[in-house]
Amino acid sequence: MTTIKTTLMGLAAGLLLSIAPAAAAEQAAAGHEEHYQIPRLKWTWGGIFGYFDQQQLRRGFKVYKEVCSNCHNLGLLSYRNLGEPGGPGFSPEEVKAIAAEVQVFEGFDEQGNIAMRAGRPADNFVWKFKNAKEAAAAFGGAVPPDLSLITRARGIEREFHWYEYPLVMAKDLATQYQEQGADYLHALLLGYVDLPAGRKIADGLNYNRVFPGNQLAMPQPLSDGQVEYGDGTPNTLDQEAKDVTAFLGWAAEPHLAERKKMGVWVIVYLAVLAGLLLLSKKVLWRNIEH
């Protein structure tokens, strides 16, 4: 493995093997694919007591609605999810209003024509396009993927020497690192940089330092000041990317906070149970040579 540059990016500081994120933005030899080291960010939903920040999810939903939803969909999500605990926490009326903005296929009327009705909270998110064919036609053959699971369906290609593997794994286990997808997505949204000298990309594609192969059909979707938050949060590109990533992170795993909360109780219970069993075993075996 000669091509390997580094590893363990953004893991806990002080590690001999880790290097600063800025140092990683260097390129592999001779104008080939760029190896950008995706920084590991701190998300509210990481770690033992992770949860989604309600205000951030609301901002992220705004970004999704105003920008992403022009091309993508969240087909596995229902409008009602927006009002469920652990999520953006919209009121029943707000959810109803959001749902009512779309038209949903109801069935066929008496003449056999397609009948549509206004969306209801129970409906799943409706795509702007009738189907993938229409989307492909609109985007020159590239279908914008559904974003329902995007933060779970993307990871980071981490490169390290084979002998570092046990260490990487131990660090992952100790820090419950599950946010690769979010890190990737955030970096991708920030990854539209100027084309490096000597690189050429195909017509109609955009250069992105994070996307595998660096050539991406999606043009830069977010920029500074694009979405008006209205709550005083600075609408920088970085903030917008973080917020929409958080929203999509929640969309991929709406029960995350519930899961982590339950986990704490289960672990505490099991620790006590294991302690009692060990005590029982010690008492039972106390006079026995073995």
């Binding site: 993307r154 419950q176 982590k260 289960v266 099991l270």
Partner: peptide, 19 residues
């Protein structure tokens, strides 16, 4: 077992399988 189920359930799997 509980530690992995509750905090890193997708760690041992491949992300591609969520497509």
């Amino acid at each position: 077992f509980a530690y992995i189920v509750f905090w890193m359930p997708n760690y041992l799997g491949d992300v591609v399988n969520y497509e």
